Computed example of a mutant assay.
Amino acid sequence: MNWLLVVVGAMVGAPLRYLTDRTVQTRHDTVFPWGTFTVNVVGCLILGVLTGAAAAGAASSHLQLLLGTGLCGALTTYSTFSYETLRLAEQGARLLAAANVIASIAAGLGAAFAGAGVAQVRWG
Rank of each mutant, 00 (worst) to 15 (best):
T30L: 04
N40A: 04
A116H: 07
V7T: 14
E84Q: 13
A99G: 02
L86D: 13
L65H: 03
G48I: 08
Q91M: 06
A111I: 05
A112F: 09
G52P: 04
M1L: 14
G110V: 01
L4I: 12
V12T: 11
A103F: 12
Q25Y: 02
A89H: 06
D29V: 12
A10P: 11
V42G: 09
G9W: 08
A119Y: 09
V31G: 12
Q25E: 07
C44F: 03
T85V: 00
I102F: 08
R22G: 11
S104M: 00
N2F: 13
R87G: 00
A54F: 13
T20Y: 00
V6K: 00
L16Y: 11
G73R: 01
A93V: 03
S79D: 02
T51Q: 15
H28R: 12
A56L: 04
T80G: 04
G48V: 08
N2P: 13
A89Q: 01
F113A: 15
V121T: 14
S104P: 03
N40R: 04
Y18C: 10
L71T: 05
G73L: 00
C72Y: 10
A56I: 03
V49T: 06
I105W: 14
Y83A: 13
L75P: 10
G57W: 08
A114K: 07
G68V: 08
V39M: 06
V49A: 05
G70L: 03
M1E: 14
R122Q: 14
L63E: 15
A89Y: 07
R27Q: 13
W34L: 09
G117F: 07
V39G: 02
R122F: 15
V6F: 00
A93C: 10
V7F: 12
A89P: 01
V24M: 08
N2K: 15
T38F: 10
L65S: 13
G35K: 01
Q64Y: 15
H28V: 15
G110T: 03
N40P: 00
L50E: 09
L66Q: 09
I102S: 03
T77P: 05
C72I: 06
G48W: 06
L86C: 14
A107E: 07
S60Q: 02
M1R: 14
W123K: 01
V118P: 01
A97M: 01
A111C: 07
L4A: 12
L5Y: 15
C44N: 03
I102R: 01
T36P: 00
D29N: 14
S82Y: 08
V24K: 05
D29Y: 05
T30N: 11
A98M: 06
D29E: 14
G9M: 11
V42R: 07
A99W: 04
M1W: 12
Y78N: 11
I102V: 13
T36S: 02
T38A: 14
A97N: 00
V41G: 02
L88F: 05
A74C: 06
P15Y: 09
V8W: 07
I105Q: 08
T69K: 01
G13T: 08
V39S: 05
G68S: 11
L71D: 07
A53F: 10
R22P: 06
P33H: 01
I102W: 06
